[in-house]
């Protein structure tokens, strides 16, 4: 499998504060890449680099190169809306719109004018809900409020919403940290299922979660990429002593 995202000498600043230092790495297509590291290590900042979510933060500045499918997304001509369609995002706290379940998923399809009619819209919503493993639980109440769903269901609704606009990359920032073990397991199973079609980058504080679902793991500390390796290598025999200390709970 080729590389979906390729990062070269990336530096990131919040005003005068440098948050990421000279990061170079590649993220393979249709794999799960986990970012781990202590709070404030820059992993979420790095994740947000891939769909230019940091653009909305005043004084944020990026140096270096981030290529998705070989194209540098920080070129001035980049269509950021199209980029965010291609690179979807799911956040720590589920954030459904104050609308019905159906409308939550339909929203992105409508504003991007991706559907050819009412029937097509309904089909696309159903497909996204099925892909997010939520359809069977909500098919009989699509027009009820999204807020009536459980936390885990809301999070899968947000995943469905992201999938509805046919992204290629899905960024997940601690998608299961507020969920109970059963809902967490559902999200994890979903991630493993979704990698057949999508490239997934997930930030997690849960080491075991990273171990369970990711193909590769990258460890960050103080804005630096310390190590990136296949997950089984990372958790049985990491190359770097800092990684070993972190994953075995010696600090962090």
């Amino acid at each position: 499998m080729g590389d979906k995202i390729s990062i070269k000498n990336l530096n990131f600043y919040y005003g005068k504060n440098q948050a990421l230092y000279d990061i170079s790495m590649k993220i393979p297509e249709r794999e799960v890449m986990a970012f781990v590291g202590p709070s404030g290590c820059g992993k979420s900042t790095f994740l947000r680099v891939f769909n230019r979510m940091n653009d909305t933060i005043p004084y944020a500045r990026v140096e270096g190169e981030v290529k998705i499918d070989g194209k540098n997304i920080y070129k001035t001509k980049t269509d950021v809306v199209a980029l965010r369609r291609k690179v979807g995002m799911v956040f720590q706290k589920s954030n459904p719109f104050p609308k019905s379940i159906f409308e939550n998923v339909a929203y992105g399809i409508r504003i991007n004018k991706m559907h050819s009619g009412k029937k097509d819209l309904a089909d696309r919503v159903e497909k996204a809900l099925r892909d997010a493993a939520l359809w069977d639980e909500v098919s009989d109440r699509l027009n009820t409020s999204a807020f009536g769903l459980s936390g885990g269901q809301q999070q899968r609704l947000c995943i469905a919403r992201a999938l509805a606009v046919q992204p290629e990359v899905i960024l997940m920032d601690e998608p299961a940290s507020a969920l109970d073990p059963i809902a967490t397991q559902k999200i994890e199973e979903l991630v493993v299922e979704l990698k057949k079609k999508y490239t997934i980058v997930i930030v997690t504080h849960n080491m075991q979660q990273a171990a369970r679902i990711s193909d590769k793991t990258a460890f960050f500390m103080l804005g630096k990429l310390i190590e990136v390796n296949p997950t089984e290598k990372m958790f049985t025999n990491p190359d770097d002593e800092l990684t070993e200390d972190y994953i075995t709970g010696r600090f962090g």
């Binding site: 080491m207 075991q208 171990a211 958790f235 049985t236 025999n237 990491p238 990684t243 070993e244 994953i247 075995t248």
Partner: peptide, 9 residues
Amino acid sequence: QQPAAHDLR
């Protein structure tokens, strides 16, 4: 304890 790395080995 869910050991990792050297602990696991």
